[in-house]
Every structure is written in C-alpha cells, then in structure tokens.
Amino acid sequence: MNVTVDPNEDSEWNDILRKHGIIPEKPPDPEPIIQEALVEAEKKAHDNRLEDKDLDELDALEDEEDEEFLEQYRKKRLAELSTLQTSSKYNQVYPLQKPDYAREVTDASNETFVLVNLTSSLAGNVESRVLSELWRQLAPKFGDIKFCEIRADLCIEGYPERNMPTILVYRDGEIRRQVITLRDLRGVKTGIQDIEKMLVDLGAIKESDVRLKRKDEDEDDEEVRRRMIRNRGMMMMMMIGIEDKILRLS
C-alpha cells in the first residue's frame, strides 16, 4: 500500500522522516526573512532621512534633529558644493558651428557628458522652443555638463522637421542616447525635472545631487510652458496679419 506524504506538512511523523533523511528539511518560513528585510529597510530610510536635504532645509531641522547628526550632513553638503563649484566649467549653452562639432562635442565628451540640442528653424515648433528655454536654465545649474545647441538643418543636411527637437547625448566620444522630439518625455509640458531624470538615468548626475530640482520649481516650469504657448499665439497672429497685407497688395 502506497502512502502519500506531504513533505511540507507539520506532523510528528514528518519530523521523524526528516530526522532520518527520508524527506527533505522543510523550507524556512519566509515571513521572518521578510519582516527582517522590512525592518532593515525602515532603519536605512531613517538613517538616510537627510540625504535629499539642502543646507537651508538642514537649518530648519535644528529643533527636530540631533545637532551632531545635522552637522555631519552640513559638512557633507558643503563638501559636495565645493566639488561642484570646482568642476563647473561650462555654465552656458554653447552655440555650435558644423566645422567645430567634432572638437566641441565628440572630443569634449571625453571629459564630461555633452548634450546637443538639434533645434528647428521654424518658429511654430513649440517643442523646440521649450527645449531651448530648458537648455538655458539647465546649463548654469549643471555647469559640469556641456549643453550645446545647433540648428538641425545646419548640422545634418535634409534632417526632417518632424524629428525636431532632437537631443544627442555624448560621452567618451560616442552617442550614448538620442531623444527624437519630446514625445517620450512630456511633449510641450516637458520641464526641468524631466531632463534631470534623464541625466540621472544616464549617470551624468547622481540621484543624491544637491542641485536636483525641488518641488517648488514646478510653478516655474508651468510659467515657461504658458509663455511659450502665448508666444506661439502671437506669432501665428503676426503671420496671419502679414498674409492679409500680401493679399491686399496683390
């Protein structure tokens, strides 16, 4: 007579079988392991609770945190800022000419990340104008990264308008990533935070970088987008007015 034994069952008989090696040992209960991992994760989060705080935010916590603990983070932030100040050598958007492209982009990428914005020559391309504005905001903020800009049609003959703007990311003499239009970001709603996330994903900046965009900058991004839309509307009205004048003259 065959007797079926459930090796995972808690029973005296199974304990005897396990003792004699007839059935394998019961696998360990995962719950204690999970609980231990959760406790460890909570401890790590608590220990690192000040990682994303800047100097002003650290000062605001003087009544809530241990002074010695705060002072460690103040020194860390000051050291980070000193390092960033030393490495910030670009601090502006570099307009490119095609003959200088290899030197200003490919060769320069051996020292740092180089981001090239291939822009549109058409005023109606709102995404291109949005990205150009973001470039002007990001360049002085991340001075250790080289932000460049060139009209796509002056850089690549016949480059299609539907692909503009295009972001080319160079490092160590090679293109590491290309982003064709802002569709895969947030279109005309693309903001500083979206580009910063891309920089983190690329490894161009660390996730703990003290310069990363703060939440209260969201309103600034929204204002940039509204200004771009208003400008586009004014440009369209001007174009319509010019067309009317041409028709009357003809």
Results as ranks from 00 to 15, higher is better:
M236R: 01
E196M: 03
D221V: 06
S88K: 03
M1T: 09
L84P: 05
F142M: 00
A123Q: 13
P160K: 05
L122D: 13
V188I: 14
T83K: 03
A204K: 03
V210L: 02
M239T: 15
N125V: 03
M1P: 04
G124N: 09
D47G: 10
N8M: 13
K245C: 10
V210N: 01
I23V: 03
A37E: 07
D66R: 05
R49S: 05
L58R: 00
T106I: 13
G124A: 10
K26D: 00
E25S: 12
N2Q: 14
C155S: 05
G191Y: 04
K206L: 08
I167A: 04
R151P: 05
T86I: 04
E31A: 15
D10N: 04
K89D: 02
Y73D: 06
C148Y: 06
V130S: 05
E157H: 12
E40D: 09
E111K: 14
S121T: 15
I33A: 14
E12T: 11
R74V: 00
E174K: 13
N91Y: 07
E36R: 15
E196V: 03
D184N: 13
G173S: 08
T86Q: 07
V130H: 03
I192H: 05
Q137Y: 14
V5A: 05
E36K: 13
Q97W: 10
E51H: 08
I240L: 04
D201Y: 04
E62N: 08
E31F: 15
R226K: 13
E127Q: 09
D184K: 10
Y73E: 13
D29R: 07
K53L: 11
E36G: 09
Y159K: 02
R214H: 08
D63N: 05
E219H: 14
F147Q: 03
D6E: 01
N8L: 15
E12A: 10
Q72P: 03
F113H: 02
I246S: 06
I205F: 01
K245V: 15
